[in-house]
Amino acid sequence: MLKHSSKFISVLATLAILWHTNGDSQTRDLGGTGKLLDGIAAIVNDGVVLRSEVNLQLEAVIANFENQQGQLPPKNVIESQVLENLIIKRIQLQRAERLGIRIPDEVLNSAITNVAVKNNVSFAEFPQVLAEEGIDYEAYRQELREQLTIDQLRQRDVASRILVSPSELESFLILQKDRDALNFDYDLSHILITVSSSASVKQIENAENLIHDIYQRVVNGENFTTLAVEFSQGQQNLNGGRLGWLKGEQLPTIFVQAATQLEKGEVSQPFRNSSGFHLILLHDFKGMEPILQDQIRVRHILIKTNEILDDDAAKEKLKTIRDQIINDGDFGAIAAAVSEDPGSAQEGGDMGWTGSGFFVPEFEAVAYAMEDDEISEPFKSRYGWHVIQ
């Protein structure tokens, strides 16, 4: 943990030089005849954060504040938070790449389809809807892919640290019956003041004083969202600390305990856990009965058409591949070698456990009609030609 912290500090240490001098030096190098198209805001290991990324994120945060009619913190405060968040994001994406975490096109397109449905449009219509809002579709896809990648990285990190003994599992199942609060959904905002494990007594005292000061300012009528952007060190600070709707089981127990004591619109007393000091604001909550969902686990091989390979050729190619799988019996090895879905190919085509509605209808119709271990005939979806098992 200390190595990561030291590396992060070293990155930030070079930041001031890059942030304040890089733009001027590049402009001088261009002389009077060139035009500066972009600049480097920070160097993060073997990658960079561009000034254009910082500016775009800064504009989005400011626009969001104006829409919420919140009091805007000083621009340099927002700018600093934006840059720090982009650096953390770049580090997370680099780590995900080293671990081989990639989002298959099927998963990405399914996520976009869900967003489109919530906006009452089809997948095909969604790019036009984004264009009308001034949002580039390819940039939106890339941003969403990065968000899904980071989510998978966090899930892997959590899973790798979980070790549950049979006795612990039994105790949990007994206690679970009495934990009605976990069956509710909570719409929360959050302010975090971090405290490291090596913090001195004075540092802990300063953090505690700060969180109590923030709490008193909220009680006195100041805007929680504004204070979250200015002071919070949580991952959603630039969104005013808004966590959105989360199930009780997704939240730390201490958060659920605090939330259940609140009325809608009420802010909690400051509380502390291993991460630091917290405040939460309860916007709303709703009950939720447990839902059992049928899931399937499939793996697939994707062949895409192009100027050279038309539908007929792609289908014939997959027929040959299917025959090879049936004769050799190694779907995973062949998927890794020939599938054109980069996210699942390295996993032998494995798409993991998924519920109804995750895949596009033409893919799902074939998958749910199959028996265990059956290999489908080649079929076409909007993304190309598939064989699935």
Rank of each mutant, 00 (worst) to 15 (best):
D372R: 14
A111R: 15
G234C: 10
A365T: 12
Q235A: 12
I214N: 03
L148C: 03
A369M: 08
F255N: 03
S52V: 00
G276M: 01
L210M: 14
E289Y: 04
L302P: 05
N55Y: 11
V77G: 01
A367M: 07
V195W: 01
V366P: 01
Q26L: 15
T226Q: 07
Q216A: 07
A314R: 04
L37Y: 09
E249A: 13
V11S: 04
S110C: 06
A139D: 14
S197K: 15
N206R: 10
A111K: 14
M351Y: 04
S6N: 11
L173A: 06
Q346R: 10
T33S: 13
I162V: 13
R51D: 10
L18W: 06
N76Q: 13
P378E: 04
Q295H: 04
I214G: 06
D180H: 12
F8E: 08
L58F: 13
Q324L: 15
Y140F: 15
V218H: 02
L37E: 14
Q68D: 12
P166D: 07
T354P: 00
V129K: 08
I174H: 07
V267D: 08
N220H: 09
H300W: 01
D187A: 02
P104Q: 07
I112T: 05
E249R: 15
Y368I: 13
N273L: 08
F224L: 07
R217D: 10
I254W: 02
S381P: 05
L144S: 01
H278K: 06
D136Y: 00
H386A: 04
D328K: 12
S171T: 10
Q155C: 02
